[in-house]
Design a protein around this nucleic acid. Structure first.
Length: 178
DNA sequence: CGGGTTTGACCAGCGC
DNA sequence: GCGCTGGTCAAACCCG
């Protein structure tokens, strides 16, 4: 794995330590991208693009762009704020799509996307009042890589301990200040 | 029976 | 204006 693959994009605001802990996975060469706060005029997308312009980057920005604009009458207006304020994407090399991050997720949709030959799955947190969503998709260039995009902040604690991956995450962040 | 998944339909934004 | 695309809904279904 190249050194460049370990570059990490830290959020300008938002979760200081993302609750991402696929402890049940065989994590190999995690590649993590954090998406900054667009409200603060920070455009981390450009930094994304130099690393992986064709995959998770463009999709992440498209996802949130759509979520901001598409608010149905009387339906979850708060989603747009969460999306703008807290979102990040990361990649893991894994055999399974679903990351065990300690939260409970309900799948609410799956779509085939044009940019990838693999379907994109949509999940929402099942905790009452928690509007966090995530999207999971395999990298079309490398099907061993799973791209996970989180939107929003959990307003509750994890249901299970997720220390294993947090340790890994901490090590990565320590090794690669950006 | 309750909770989660599947899947087709629907809707809105965007590009042409 | 229209078609394409992505995100969400919701009914049907599955499973413990």
């Amino acid at each position: 794995m190249s050194m460049e693959k370990y570059q990490i994009f830290l959020p300008v605001s938002g979760p200081s330590s993302p609750s991402v802990s696929p402890s049940s996975l065989s994590i190999e060469n995690p590649v993590i991208y954090f998406h900054g706060d667009s409200e603060n005029e920070v455009r981390p997308e450009s930094r994304f693009q130099h690393l992986d312009a064709k995959n998770s980057v463009s999709q992440t920005s498209r996802i949130c762009k759509g979520s901001e604009l598409r608010v149905k009458p009387g339906k979850r207006v708060g989603d747009s704020d969460d999306c703008r304020k807290h979102r990040f994407a990361f990649q893991t090399r894994s055999q399974v799509d679903i990351l065990d991050d300690g939260y409970r997720w309900r799948k609410y949709g799956q779509k085939t996307v044009k940019s990838s030959r693999f379907p994109r799955s949509y999940y929402m947190c099942t905790s009452n009042g928690c509007n966090v969503k995530k999207q999971v998709q395999r990298n079309s260039k490398d099907e061993g890589i799973v791209v996970t995009t989180y939107e929003g902040m959990h307003n509750h604690a994890t249901e299970r301990s997720s220390e294993n991956f947090e340790d890994i995450l901490r090590q990565i962040q320590t090794c690669t200040p950006f």
